[in-house]
Write a protein that binds this DNA or RNA. Structure first.
Lengths: 170, 170
DNA sequence: TTGGAATGTCAACAAGGCTGACTTAAAGTG
DNA sequence: CACTTTAAGTCAGCCTTGTTGACATTCCAA
């Protein structure tokens, strides 16, 4: 990327000279890329009258089986009423199982059933396929950079979220 | 990024060995990063009873002043009814101006008023600030890679969109 | 035993997508 | 000129997914 200028300073510190135009392009790229990134799962979800909210819930349950509702709320950053509506349909439809906690019986531990795992697999398959294609086209160095910037943005977001959690709990 | 393995093949062709886990991390990173990326403008928009839809419209009008409604529809990928609802309030509130086309009087050309430019500036400022911070933290090489992967994903999306346009028009 | 935390539920509402039907005006075409 | 197509706007109604607020239940812990 020739239009990202950088200057190496004495001690390894790096200054980036980024014009507003370059940043604007990055912003637009995020918009279009995110849209492409959700397009494939959206098609599958539409078939079965589910939405992105269902996908997100299943994704994070798959990723952390046995997680509690509160945990999921914190990760997803929505209200419990919003999440509950989604979880209820998933449980009714037999995609998610909610087990009462052994240690703390108020808590519900969430798991994907076999059916749920099947759908989650289908959804993440198409998403991974698309991401793999983009990775392959861009090359390994670009992928490393992509992940680094995204993880930096993600960390910032996670920190903001944790801060919000702490403030919320007093 | 040590966990992205690559193997250089004879003619400069590169194979990426990406595990499902690595791709999953990329997917999650997109989710969290996108959320972080929209968080700041959302706060400002909330103050004035606007939403992301208004932001997107203003962004692309600012980026291509004089664009037509149909153009904007194609870029945003929403229905004209959806866009119209947003445009109507922006025009009523004096942020967007709609001028009848000189060449083709059916068309309306869209511009941001001074007030509109002011708000758009405020919104993109906070977004650029966040992006600049992430860029700076990740370093110039990472930024180049980030943009390359995103542009690849974006191109894919834009091609899909153009294809849809062509098919839609017969 | 009482306070607070975790969960779930009901109701109402808003933003922002969608479809379908329809109008108006302008442009293109036979 | 008559007809069709196109650009834009509008109305009505629907869906998903977010929000608040109020409230019940259950259970842990002081």
């Amino acid at each position: 990327m020739a239009d990202v200028h950088s200057a190496q300073i004495q001690g390894g510190e790096t200054l980036l000279f980024l014009t507003d135009e370059q940043l604007r392009q990055g912003i637009e790229a995020m918009f279009f890329a995110y849209r492409g990134f959700t397009a494939d799962p959206d098609l599958i979800l539409q078939e079965m009258a589910y939405g992105r909210a269902h996908h997100r819930a299943m994704h994070f349950i798959q990723c952390a089986p046995g997680t509690t509702v509160n945990n999921l709320l914190a990760i997803l950053g929505v209200t419990k009423q919003s999440l509950n509506r989604v979880l209820r349909t998933l449980i009714e439809d037999g995609l998610v199982e909610s087990r009462v906690g052994r240690l703390d019986k108020r808590e519900r531990h969430l798991f994907l059933t076999e059916t749920g795992q099947g759908l989650e697999q289908r959804l993440s398959d198409v998403q991974r396929t698309r991401m793999r294609a983009a990775y392959r086209q861009a090359g390994p160095e670009a992928v490393a950079g992509f992940r680094k910037v995204l993880e930096t943005m993600m960390d910032t977001e996670m920190r903001r979220q944790c801060k919000a959690l702490r403030e919320g709990r007093g």
